[in-house]
């Protein structure tokens, strides 16, 4: 058994999940903030679009992204104009795809957690001289720790287990875009059942221990916030 064929995909899955989580906590917080605190034109349309990846088959999303990020697509073309390289079949490409795919898993918990914050403490922050931008970091963020934690867990684990979208736009390049779930799929197909077993077990154990740690932390968090 080749250890690289086991470790590389796991490492890429982990990197992908971590990068997607970082990007989505920022982007998700921004979107959730707009949806909770600002007037958003055509709100039902925007909210439905954000939730779409939950109900859409990953292959459909993957197909759209393949077109969008391809050399003829808007995103692919502007990326190529900016950086001179193609977006498809690269690590950056699968990060972007995962960001779209996991968007609702970041926005929904953050939205719920922002909406739970007492409006008056935000008003008080403005009264005390904080701009909306500063108030977001000094009041909204520290009072949404549980929401950020929930968003991070969901996005991280959802990305670790992502399959259909990456199958479409990743191209399974070893060492770059071949993530664990795809390596498992390929191992099963090429009858390398031992590799499939090892990879699946590591992935399952990693996800489980991650959840365990986060749940333990989260419990402490709730105790700390309780009045």
């Amino acid at each position: 058994m080749d250890t690289g064929s086991i470790l590389d995909p796991l490492w890429i899955s982990f990197k992908l999940a971590a990068a997607t989580t970082v990007v989505l906590l920022a982007a998700g917080a921004f979107l959730a903030y707009l949806l909770v605190y600002r007037k958003v034109p055509a709100r039902p349309v925007v909210e439905s679009l954000i939730s779409l990846p939950i109900v859409l088959p990953p292959t459909v999303l993957g197909f759209y992204l393949l077109i969008l990020m391809g050399p003829k697509g808007a995103l692919g073309r502007s990326w190529e104009g900016l950086f001179g390289s193609s977006l498809l079949f690269t690590f950056t490409g699968i990060v972007i795809a995962s960001v779209f795919h996991s968007l609702p898993f970041a926005v929904q918990p953050l939205k719920a957690s922002f909406a739970r914050i007492d409006r008056r403490i935000l008003e008080n922050a403005h009264v005390l001289g904080l701009s909306p931008f500063k108030a977001f970091f000094r009041v909204v963020v520290p009072n949404s720790v549980a929401g950020f934690a929930a968003a991070a867990i969901l996005v991280f684990l959802h990305t670790m287990g992502e399959f259909g979208v990456i199958l479409m736009v990743g191209g399974s390049v070893p060492g770059k875009t071949k993530v664990a779930s795809i390596a498992i799929f390929e191992a099963v197909e090429s009858l390398r059942y031992r590799d499939a077993w090892v990879l699946s077990l590591v992935l399952a154990l990693a996800s489980f221990s991650f959840l365990l740690v986060v749940n333990a932390l989260n419990k402490g968090e709730y105790d700390g916030l309780k009045g």
Partner: peptide, 20 residues
């Protein structure tokens, strides 16, 4: 330069859409 689609059908699809 290589990209490894899952089967020959997906390889053809990548080529026709201009992804490769």
């Amino acid at each position: 330069k290589y990209v490894f689609p899952q089967d020959i059908g997906q390889a053809f699809q990548y080529a026709t859409t201009g992804s490769v």
